[in-house]
Every structure is written in structure tokens, then in C-alpha cells.
Nucleic acid binder design. Structure first.
Length: 818
DNA sequence: GCTTAGGGTTTG
């Protein structure tokens, strides 16, 4: 007999059939209802090891931590909890260590719903494994694993207080179970006023949002939302919310919204109390407008909400409205009211988008009103535009071009055409020719309004997709629907894009008809096609042929995919950023001391008085032998420049080697900086494998002095530019993470070195990735890829073997140029 | 499990 929430209270009481239902709620002290079967005996948690005899043994403890329910496959769950013995009798002579309990499947789900922190539980039918986290968490060296038929959890609940209803103890167990069920599902939450927070406590709070930032990527593992909330105690409290998943963040649309947060911790920072989420955190958001329906916004599948919550929200609403908390002028502005140079929030619909360069994407939006100022027109090539590349004249005049920069790219690239957005802290500025990255075939009109969503998150700058059912969207839709449709943009059809026509292929058909692929693979023609799940069963080594779609990839920003690789020590290194390199240059030139030229070189020194920089000595060192040679044998050492100056000079030079003085000697710079500038290309050396020396170069018998020759002369172990990307593949059977690395250059048909130095090469790679994984498109719009993969083994951070896959012998089929 | 940020306009 079970009740609707899946908690079972009868069942195994009479015998050993624990596999019937794995979850039971017991009422303490009632003496009735379900019991722990008599053949089970309790042992102390301190006695648990992998060699402990576990037959018919149970352990009892208080839940001191309860993790979230994690779904790792459809309908399969895992949940981690920590329990600790409360009674000292059993463990008087030993440490009372809390132990990790890992629950799987249905039991995890039941536990998540039916057990709260502080509950007393008995676990039966568990197995024991070594705890992999013992060194980090200092908990019990073993874990309890509860999975499958034999595993079972009993929960003890204090008997509910009598509330005028018949005593629970007198009821039959079936009735009892329903009561318990209700009690288990609706725990009582208490909320702390923001004026009563004390550092260190974990509490539940309500508050009116007076400031917020949409979630942004933190330097850690999570995204971070910042909000400031207040309540009747008139305290302003800053909250930092860290969640990996965006949907777990507060769904705040505007100042004045009301949030309810569970399990946030108060802590001191800069002399005031702030809040941060703790494990088990959840948040629900409400519209803050007096009189509106109280509708909770949350992605939680189960959350508690009752009349008391409704009352609290309504009280906060009316209190806030009486306090003039909210800015008198809303930041939300229609296009018809936009003032040049102002910052504002725009609620709009996305009509089209186009990448501009690696730091900027163009969103074409409208809100159904017409801006009185002329709007900037941007013409982007049709084949890079997602959505219609042009609209009817009338509609064009209503479309705002929004340039979205830097950290907002990630969010912008995921936006679906047709979706309704709110863009926060948008800047309206007269557009001019400095709009980034426009090639000759693109153009802008001067002195028309353009909209910029600048980088950073100041003032809550960001983008949020509004749900279709929100009031603002309903209102916007009404306005937009009043506007006559024009055929040119009807509907949001991606299939007319020239790019997709070339790339996209139909989904796998049932009759086994061959599917067109966007890639061609190497290997032998009769190599059998494997599914991803079959591939995972294969042994290491060997080449396998798969057909899959690209689900996602990392990094999204190309420059992060570029790395430096040392073929000698096989290390992979990051490309140092300009700030670091500029620092090395400035340190080297500020350390200047007069020095001697080597006998084979001619030294010339100049005093520079570049504006904005202290006077410096610029020193040029030229090998005498090469001075009269042709340009392709140009070879110059330069000392005392800034990075900027070096780049300018290098643009028109063959080989410039930055050097510095050190104890009257001339040496190369620290190898974190490029050791060689050749035109727009920079070359790096391996710190570990180089033994640098300043030597006379010889160009005899060579036509061109290139980076290899320079590296050889200077004892530098040249680092090679490589591309490293992680791709998530998917077919009907499974998903698989694979690396694209060794064969990345042939895959893209672009060299990593070019990608490091020129925009066109970068654009080509970016376009490739976007054609294989169209931003915002559904998976069935992703083309199928024929590829070869090999499996190999590496060690992870803790020395565990890990199977990795990489793409090999696979090239893109280039669209025919027209 | 730990960290992440801790509001206050890009520099296109």
C-alpha cells in the first residue's frame, strides 16, 4: 500500500522482503505503524569497513547533510547525503565520524522528497566502498552505497503534535501513512527578517529586489547572480548566488520583484552582513506589483508554497509600494522614447542575429515602436546572418541594431530567433565608422543611433529571455501583432540560409538511406560504422568510424582554443595575454643599464620621448653580416620598447627579437613573452626546454630567415600553435566528449598559426563551428558528421586512468564557392 | 567538497 508521494509505510515489516519498497517513514514513539524488521541488527557506523560482515545489518544516524537530487540519465537519479550517529553508547570508544551515503535510483528520489536535514534515518541493505573524498572531507573513510532491490531507508519523524484531529497513534497504519505523507511533503519553513541576520547562520529569507545582476560566469565553477534585497526591517542585504545551472538562479526580471530564498548563509563582508547560498539552496521569485497574481517563478520541480507565502508576498508588495523603494523612472524604455547617449532596459523580440567578430555579435530586435531618431543600418553578409538578412522597408525602420560585446556573447549566441528578451543597461549611441570588424562588404551609416550592450556586468548589464507567459511579453506581443506582417521575414525559417543549405542534412531516415555528411573521413572505405555506445565498449587504440551530430563545443571563444605546444616536453601551454607580455616589456625597458654590444653586431641607441611614457633608451642591435642582405634576411634585436611599439615596428619587419640588458649583457626577455615578432605573427619558446643564448645568426644558404632558423640560432625550443577543442557528439545511442587537437588544422583547413594572427582564419573556424552547431538551432538542424575517432588513455588530476577520444583523419567538406 | 563575488557604466 503506498500513498501518492511514493512514501511507503507498510511492506517489509513482517519479513525479509525489503526489496518491495525501499522507503519507509516511521513515527517515533507511537509503537504502531511500520517497524524495522526484527531480524535486522544495528551496528555502529564507526565499525564500517569493506570487510565488515553486513548481512542483516543496519546503521542509524542523523542526516547532517542532504545533497541535491542529480539526474544522470533519464529517470535515473543519484543523491549524496551525510549521516552521523547521535547516541554515544555505540561509539563511546571511537570517533563519531559522519559517513557519506550515496543513494541511487528510486530510493534517491524518495529520499530527496521525503527526508530533511536533521531527520533520523536507518539504512539497510547497503554495500560499502572506500570513500574517494576522505582526504578532502575528513569524513568516514568508507561510503555507504544504497542501490537496487535490497537497499532500504527508514525515516523517523517526531510524532506530529495533536491538532484537534483524532490521535494519529490510534489510527491504522494506512491512514497514518497518508498523514505522514502530508507532513513529509510540507515541512514548515521559518523566515528571518533581514534585520535579524546573524553571521554564520543558515536561514530562509524573503526580500524585495532593489538591485540585481543577471547570472554571469564567475572565475570559479559556477555562474554568479548578485542581488540586493530589502524588507520591512529596512536593511539592504547583498546576496551572492552561485549555481552551476542557469535555471537554478533567481528569475528576476525587474527591480521590485520579490524573492524567497531557502538555505542562504549570513556572513560578514566589509562590515556588513551579506547572504550566500548554501547546499540545498532554492529560490522562488514573484512579481512585486501590488494587485497582480502571485505566481511563483522557479525551475524547482517541487517547492513549497502556501497561503502564508502568498500573504508574505502581498505584505512585501504593499510595504514596498509605500516606501518609494523603486526608482521613480523605470529603466524600461520603448524604442520610441530612447534618448541618445542614455542607458536603458529594452524589452524586445529578436528577429535576426549575425556574428561581427570574436568579441561582438549583432542582434536585430524590435519592440513595435518607432524610434524618433534615425537608426543605424548595418548590412551584414546574408550567409553569416541567422534569420532573414533583410526586412520590408517599413519594418527595417523599426529595427534596432544591438551590438553585444564580450561576456554577453555566450548568452547572445544561445538566443533563439523570435524569442522575447529584456536587455539591461543598453546604451544608445550615435553609430559611426568605429563599429568593430566590418569588412568592405558591410557598412554603417554615420550618426544614426546604434545600441551597445557593452562588456562587463556593471549596473546589471545583461540579457534575459522572458517567458512567453509573462505580462510584459503578452503586452509586447499585442503591439507586434498589430503590426502588419511582411512576407520577407515569414516565419523564422532557418532553411533559406545559404550556409545551412550547404551544410545541413536531413535527420537519419528509418529506411537506412545514406545520410549526407558535412565531413569526410579517412580510414578504409569498408570500415564498419559504430554507434557511440558501441564505441565506448571498444578497446583502446585503433581507429573507429562514427556518424554523429555536434551537440556543443568548448571553448566558445576561439582564442581560448589556441594553445602552445612543445614537441620536446609535450606540454600544452596557454598563450600569455597581452597584459602579461606588456608587463614583461615595460619591466625590461625600465631596468635598462648601458651594455656592450657583441663584436658581431652594430649597436645604435636613441633616446625616445614618446608622449605619456618616461624617457627611455631605445637600442637597436644588428648583426653586421646581415646588414647588407635582402629584406627576407632581416634580423634585428631591439631593446627598450613597449609591447605596443614592438607590434607597430614588427608589422613591417621580417624578424625582430626583443632583448634587454642584464648586468651589461644583452639577453632575451623572459620566455613568457614572444621571443620573436615576424610581421603580425608572434612566436614563443618553451621555458623548460630552451637554453637561450645571444649568437651571431648566419644566413648562408638560406633564402628566408624564418622562425625556425631564429629559434635555432638563439637556442629556443620553438612552441607550436595548436588548436584544442572539446566537442560533445551525439547519435541515437549516446553522447560522447571528444577532443579535436592533432588533426584540428586539417579538419578546419586552417593553420593554428594563422588563426593566432589573422581575423579571416578565425572567422573561418568560427563559421565552421557555427555551421556544425548552429547557435540557437535545435539539434535536428545540426548536420551529421562522418568522422574517425581513436580512444586513448590518460591520467586525470588524481592519477586515475581516464579514456579519452580524439578526432582524426576527418576533414570538412567545403561548400562549393559560388 | 572547494571556489566563485562582495553593484556603480565601454572605450567597440
Amino acid at each position: 500500500m503506498s500513498c501518492s508521494c511514493g512514501v511507503q509505510t507498510d511492506g517489509a515489516a513482517g519479513g525479509g522482503h525489503l526489496d518491495v519498497m525501499p522507503f519507509h517513514v516511521l513515527l517515533e514513539g507511537t509503537g504502531t505503524g511500520p517497524q524495522i524488521p526484527g531480524h535486522l541488527t544495528r551496528i555502529s557506523i564507526s565499525l564500517i569497513t569493506t570487510s565488515t560482515e553486513l548481512t542483516n545489518k543496519v546503521v542509524k544516524g542523523k542526516v547532517v547533510q542532504k545533497g541535491p537530487l542529480v539526474s544522470f540519465a533519464p529517470d535515473n537519479f543519484i543523491l549524496k547525503a551525510v549521516i552521523q550517529e547521535e547516541d554515544s553508547v555505540l561509539n563511546a570508544s571511537s570517533q563519531n565520524l559522519p559517513i557519506n551515503v550515496v543513494l541511487f535510483g528510486e530510493l534517491a528520489k524518495n529520499f530527496s522528497q521525503g527526508v530533511n536535514q536533521e531527520d533520523l534515518v536507518v539504512a539497510a541493505g547497503f554495500t560499502v566502498s572506500k570513500s574517494p573524498t576522505v582526504r578532502k572531507d575528513n569524513l568516514h573513510p568508507f561510503n555507504l552505497l544504497l542501490s537496487g532491490g535490497g537497499a532500504c531507508i527508514y525515516v523517523f519523524r517526531p510524532q506530529p503534535p495533536p491538532d484537534g484531529k483524532p490521535s494519529l497513534a490510534n489510527k491504522r497504519s494506512s491512514t497514518l501513512s497518508t498523514e505522514v505523507c502530508r507532513k513529509t511533503k510540507i515541512p514548515k519553513y521559518t523566515y528571518v527578517r533581514l534585520g535579524d541576520l546573524s553571521a554564520g547562520s543558515v536561514v530562509n529569507v524573503y526580500g524585495v529586489v532593489v538591485f540585481f545582476k543577471q547570472p554571469f560566469k564567475s572565475r570559479g565553477t559556477d555562474s554568479c547572480s548578485i542581488l540586493k534585497i530589502t524588507d520591512q526591517s529596512n536593511q539592504n542585504i547583498t546576496c551572492s548566488i552561485f549555481c552551476e545551472k542557469l535555471e537554478d538562479h533567481p528569475k528576476i526580471f525587474q527591480i521590485g520583484d520579490i524573492v524567497r530564498m531557502h538555505r542562504v548563509k549570513a556572513q560578514f563582508f566589509k562590515d556588513s552582513i551579506s547572504l550566500v547560498n548554501t547546499s540545498g539552496f532554492s529560490v522562488v521569485t514573484f512579481d512585486g506589483t501590488v494587485g497582480r497574481a502571485v505566481e511563483p517563478r522557479t525551475s524547482s520541480r517541487s517547492f513549497h508554497f502556501n497561503q502564508e507565502d502568498r500573504r508574505t508576498v502581498e505584505e512585501l508588495r504593499s510595504w514596498a509600494s509605500s516606501q518609494a523603494l523603486l526608482p521613480t523612472v523605470s529603466a524600461a524604455i520603448r524604442l520610441s522614447a530612447v534618448q541618445p547617449k542614455s542607458y536603458f532596459d529594452l524589452t524586445c523580440q529578436l528577429l535576426a542575429k549575425a556574428p561581427i567578430d570574436s568579441t561582438c555579435i549583432l542582434l536585430r530586435v524590435w519592440d513595435g515602436t518607432r524610434c524618433p531618431h534615425a537608426l543605424l543600418k548595418v548590412i551584414v553578409e546574408p550567409n553569416v546572418t541567422e534569420g532573414p538578412s533583410s526586412f520590408s522597408m517599413e519594418k527595417e525602420n523599426m529595427i534596432a541594431n544591438v551590438f553585444v560585446y564580450d561576456n554577453h556573447l555566450d548568452c547572445a549566441s544561445k538566443l533563439k530567433l523570435g524569442s522575447f528578451l529584456r536587455i539591461y543597461n543598453l546604451r544608445a549611441n550615435p553609430g559611426h565608422s568605429t563599429v568593430p570588424g566590418l569588412t568592405s562588404s558591410q557598412s554603417v551609416e554615420v550618426d544614426h543611433l546604434a545600441f551597445h550592450l557593452h562588456g562587463g556586468t556593471s549596473y546589471g548589464r545583461g540579457i534575459r529571455v522572458l517567458p512567453e507567459d509573462s505580462l510584459d511579453v503578452q503586452e509586447l506581443k499585442r503591439v507586434l501583432e498589430a503590426f502588419p506582417h511582411d512576407d520577407m521575414n515569414e516565419p523564422f525559417d532557418l532553411n533559406d540560409s545559404a550556409l545551412l543549405e550547404v551544410w545541413s542534412t536531413p535527420p537519419e531516415s528509418l529506411d537506412g538511406e545514406a545520410v549526407k555528411s558535412s565531413t569526410e573521413r579517412g580510414g578504409t572505405p569498408d570500415m564498419p560504422l559504430k554507434t557511440l555506445s558501441e564505441l565506448k565498449q571498444c578497446e583502446l587504440g585503433g581507429v573507429h568510424y562514427v556518424r554523429a551530430q555536434l551537440r556543443s563545443y568548448e571553448p566558445r571563444r576561439l582564442h581560448q582554443a589556441l594553445k602552445l605546444y612543445c614537441s620536446k616536453c609535450t606540454s600544452m601551454q596557454e598563450i600569455p595575454d597581452d597584459e602579461l607580455v606588456a608587463g614583461i616589456f615595460s619591466e625590461a625597458s625600465s631596468d635598462y643599464e648601458p651594455c656592450n654590444a657583441p663584436p658581431w653586431a652594430l649597436l645604435s641607441a636613441f633616446l625616445t620621448d614618446a608622449p605619456g611614457s618616461p624617457d627611455r633608451v631605445l637600442t637597436l642591435l644588428q648583426p653586421k653580416q646581415l646588414m647588407s642582405e635582402v629584406k627576407t634576411k632581416e634580423f634585428i634585436f631591439l631593446m627598450g620598447t613597449t609591447l605596443q611599439e614592438m607590434c607597430r615596428l614588427a608589422a613591417s619587419s621580417q624578424n625582430i627579437i626583443p632583448v634587454r640588458s642584464s648586468g651589461r649583457q644583452i639577453t632575451l626577455l623572459d620566455l613568457s613573452a614572444p621571443f620573436l615578432f615576424r610581421g603580425r605573427k608572434r612566436h614563443y619558446g618553451c621555458k623548460r626546454c630552451s637554453e637561450t643564448v645571444l649568437r651571431e645568426p648566419s644566413a648562408e644558404g638560406v633564402e628566408v630567415i624564418d622562425e625556425k632558423i631564429v629559434a635555432g640560432v638563439l637556442g629556443v625550443q620553438l612552441l607550436k600553435f595548436v588548436l584544442l577543442m572539446k566537442l560533445e557528439l551525439q547519435d541515437a545511442t549516446d553522447t560522447l566528449e571528444v577532443f579535436l587537437w592533432r588533426d584540428a588544422e586539417s579538419f578546419f583547413g586552417v593553420s593554428a598559426e594563422d588563426a593566432a594572427a589573422n581575423q579571416e582564419a578565425q572567422n573561418s573556424i568560427r563559421q565552421t563551428m557555427e555551421s556544425l552547431c548552429p547557435p540557437g538551432g535545435s539539434l535536428d538542424q545540426h548536420p551529421w558528421l562522418d568522422m574517425c575517432l581513436t580512444a586513448y588513455q590518460t591520467k586525470d588530476d588524481v592519477g586515475q586512468n581516464q579514456t579519452c577520444y580524439h578526432i582524426c583523419q576527418t576533414n570538412l567538406i567545403k561548400p562549393r564557392s559560388t
